[in-house]
């Protein structure tokens, strides 16, 4: 599994500094941790008071609305694609970026395929956990294959309408 972070052109491989805390394990005393929404709710005070970074992992059926108040203290939100065809995380990503003003790392995890990278970038994801052995190469080419966009999203790309009107 490779972790990629987007750059102005393509992406780079990065090291995952977070340790994912599994359901039945105790939260480690120190270090950067990635926890479930349930754990965040149960251990909210101590987690948000840590010196090290805290990330939250949402299943695709969990809405990000419950995180809104804590986003200033959360440095990573990981949204899961249990299968590529479960598109709920696209909505969650846009809500986090465009409604709740989240500026930290937004990571796509699960069934993250090259052909969907373009949609994920447009929805606000900036890191990607990918199983493909060619992930870096795919990232460099595939999301740019279709260059025109019609929909305004939080990514700031000029839409066809905006280009037409020169706005």
């Amino acid at each position: 599994m490779a972790l990629l972070e987007k750059r102005d052109s393509g992406a780079v491989l990065i090291v995952d500094r977070y340790s994912k805390v599994e359901e039945d394990a105790a939260t480690p005393e120190s270090g950067d941790v990635l926890v479930s929404l349930e754990r965040l709710e149960a251990e909210r005070e101590s987690l948000l008071a840590r010196a090290d970074s805290v990330g939250v992992w949402l299943r695709s059926d969990q809405s990000p609305s419950g995180l809104a108040d804590d986003l200033g203290k959360i440095e990573l939100v990981a949204l899961d694609f249990p299968v590529f065809s479960d598109g709920r995380a696209y909505s969650s990503a846009r809500l986090l970026r465009e409604r709740y003003g989240y500026r930290g790392e937004l990571r796509a995890v699960g069934d993250v395929l090259a052909e969907q990278l373009g949609f994920m970038l447009r929805s606000g994801f900036d890191t990607f956990e990918m199983a493909s052995p060619n992930a870096l190469e795919e990232f460099a080419t595939i999301p740019k294959e279709v260059r025109v966009v019609y929909q305004p999203t939080g990514d700031g790309l000029a839409t066809a309408t905006e280009l037409r009107l020169g706005t």
């Binding site: 590529f84 598109g87 066809a160």
Partner: peptide, 13 residues
């Protein structure tokens, strides 16, 4: 048609 074409959020409903 234009709005729905390759909509990043609504391609996996």
């Amino acid at each position: 048609r234009q709005w729905s074409t390759l909509h990043p959020e609504f391609s996996f409903l």
